[in-house]
């Protein structure tokens, strides 16, 4: 019974998916090593796994019509968020960004002019996340834009990466209390519920940091007094 259970666990499904992906497609070197890096085991301690918290600032929700403005990420390992290894890069773009986006993101064309080309930023990102579990708040946006880039650039299907999503963990936690209908799951509101400080500034890196802190807080709450393992964590 237990082995069968393990077999169908999302993490093991992801492992098999990765193996198929590697054997089926001809991959560039960096993507190959990204996917060849071992995934954590079902019973690995969640606090000892290496993570990267990630946030994209974009002009909208749809990669077909919107663009990535900036990428921010920083590692989390052994319960410590490593600010010294944080990265935030703006993406050089020829297209004009929408005025409303500029207001929301506080990103103005001058900042983007100083940015790096998307390919360069993505290469850096791939190497930074190799061997890491990805953390995002509402990872659907990051996933979508990443997958779109992979498809356009390498003509590959979506990458089988291991994501944990603070938004969906928070949802599963509050669901037990039956209050999720009215709840506000935005990053700032979720953080406030967990007693984390308010960050007035906004940006890809600050949001990635805010997400990493939230992830630690959620893990501590979710696994208080019990062993924290992937077996019992919702993954994406």
């Amino acid at each position: 019974m237990v082995p069968l259970f393990n077999y169908y666990h999302a993490l093991n499904k992801l492992k098999r998916k990765r193996e198929r992906y590697i054997s089926k497609y001809d991959l560039p070197d960096n993507i190959k090593s990204l996917l060849k890096a071992p995934l954590p085991g079902l019973d690995d301690d969640l606090f000892e796994v290496d993570y990267v918290a990630l946030d994209f600032e974009t002009t909208g929700f749809y990669p077909e019509q919107d663009q990535i403005l900036s990428v921010g990420y920083l590692p989390l390992s052994n319960q410590k968020i490593l600010v010294s290894e944080a990265a935030e890069t703006f993406i050089k773009s020829s297209e004009k960004i929408k005025a409303e986006t500029a207001v929301i993101n506080h990103i103005v064309p001058e900042m983007l002019e100083k940015g790096l080309p998307l390919d360069e930023v993505m290469d850096m990102l791939f190497s930074a996340i190799t061997g890491k579990v990805l953390i995002a708040h509402g990872c659907i946006i990051e996933k979508r834009f990443l997958d779109y880039y992979i498809a356009k650039h390498f003509q590959l299907p979506p990458l089988p990466l291991l994501w944990v999503d603070t938004l969906s963990i928070e949802k599963s936690l509050t669901m037990h209390k039956g209050t999720h209908k009215s709840a506000d799951f935005r990053l700032a509101s979720t953080r406030a519920r967990h007693g984390l400080p308010e960050y007035s500034a906004h940006g890809a890196l600050i949001d990635a940091l805010a997400t990493a802190e939230l992830y630690l807080a959620l893990l501590k709450k979710r696994f208080a007094g019990t062993k924290a393992s992937f077996r019992h964590l919702k993954i994406e």
Binding site: Q79, K80, I81, V83, L209, E213, A217, K220, K221, A224
Partner: peptide, 11 residues
Amino acid sequence: IAGSIKITYLA
């Protein structure tokens, strides 16, 4: 100094 810190969370 701000750039060198690590952040952790204690329950």
